[in-house]
Design a protein around this nucleic acid. Structure first.
Length: 287
DNA sequence: ACCCAGGGTGACG
DNA sequence: CGTCACCATGGG
């Protein structure tokens, strides 16, 4: 258990291994933005939050109650998870060691499955800044306003909202050809597709269930399993990870399913963490 | 003008 | 089973 202390209307958490920039800009989430002072502001689970690193392992959650921390942020940041044991388990691979040094302080967040589902449907054949833009447009058009620190933020709209939007109107958010996928996904969830039930499934059953939703293939499903359901064995294979495995690990096979199984056998239960470090490493290296 | 992005789908062998 | 054009959008 971490030490928590209320301070100046906010909450300070001590002893948390986190780097906000690496965590929020590693491509797992799309709703956090850097402020001029280096802090980050975002919205999750219907709540707005500003967070900053105020010292070694000290995280300050601004204008937030201890109750919000316990109800939402403790889970969202996965504060129980001990990352030193993950690093220990993944040690010994030179490429991954270098990637872990670069991605120091990345935490895999535990996002809302519904928001994660739609966000990664949007991610298909798209770029991160554009994904962020579309998600933001959707929230501004269909979400609920939240006042926080003198500004207005918007929640991610529920399935019943998006199910009621027609395709041409939704395209005003610049989501492009993914509009029909988003609307159909919303209708399925609204009509009883049980996103919560997936928490309890083993990874293969969970993946095939998610793939029943249009716009969800192997890669998108694995992102949702990793970033929302906490299934850390999941190893999403996108163009960057493919580059890592072919160029750095010498794996000569373009079949996504075989790449994924190779990684799962190589990195085990922590494959998802390895994936995120490697993805971040490859992207930063290319830029 | 061309290529590509945290891909998925459907058509075709 | 594998391959491939296509999808909408914006940036290089």
């Amino acid at each position: 258990m971490l030490k928590v202390e209320e301070r100046q209307g906010g909450v300070v958490v001590y002893g948390l291994d986190i780097d906000l920039k690496n965590t929020f800009e590693c491509g797992q989430c799309f709703r956090w933005n850097a402020e001029p002072d280096g802090s980050y502001t975002g919205v999750a689970y219907g709540k707005a939050l500003n967070v900053s690193e105020i010292g070694d392992g000290m995280l300050y959650l601004k204008d937030t109650s201890k109750k919000d921390l316990e109800d939402t942020w403790y889970y969202y940041f996965d504060m129980d998870k001990d990352y030193s044991s993950i690093a220990e388990a993944l040690k010994g691979d030179e490429i991954l060691d270098k990637a872990m040094r670069m991605g120091r302080g990345i935490r895999i967040l535990r996002q809302d499955p519904w928001e994660c589902l739609i966000s990664f449907i949007i991610s298909a054949n798209n770029r991160i800044p554009q994904i962020k833009r579309v998600v933001e447009n959707i929230c501004r058009s269909y979400g609920d306003p939240v006042d926080y620190m003198g500004r207005t933020y918007y929640t991610f709209p529920g399935p019943e909202r998006l199910a009621a939007v027609d395709e041409e109107t939704l395209k005003e958010t610049r989501c492009g050809f993914r509009a029909s996928y988003i609307i159909e996904a919303a209708r399925m969830v609204q009509q009883g597709f049980d996103l919560k039930a997936i928490y309890e499934m083993d990874i293969d059953e969970a993946r095939s269930r998610l793939k029943e939703i249009p716009g969800v293939g192997d890669k998108v499903a694995d992102c949702i399993l990793l970033f929302a359901y906490g299934k850390t064995q999941a190893f999403p294979v996108d163009v960057w990870v493919k580059k890592v495995l072919t160029q750095l690990y010498g794996f000569k096979d373009s079949n996504i399913d075989r790449i994924r199984r190779f990684a799962e056998s190589k990195f085990g239960d922590y494959a998802g963490y390895a994936q995120q470090y490697l993805f971040y490493y490859m992207r930063e290296k290319a830029m």
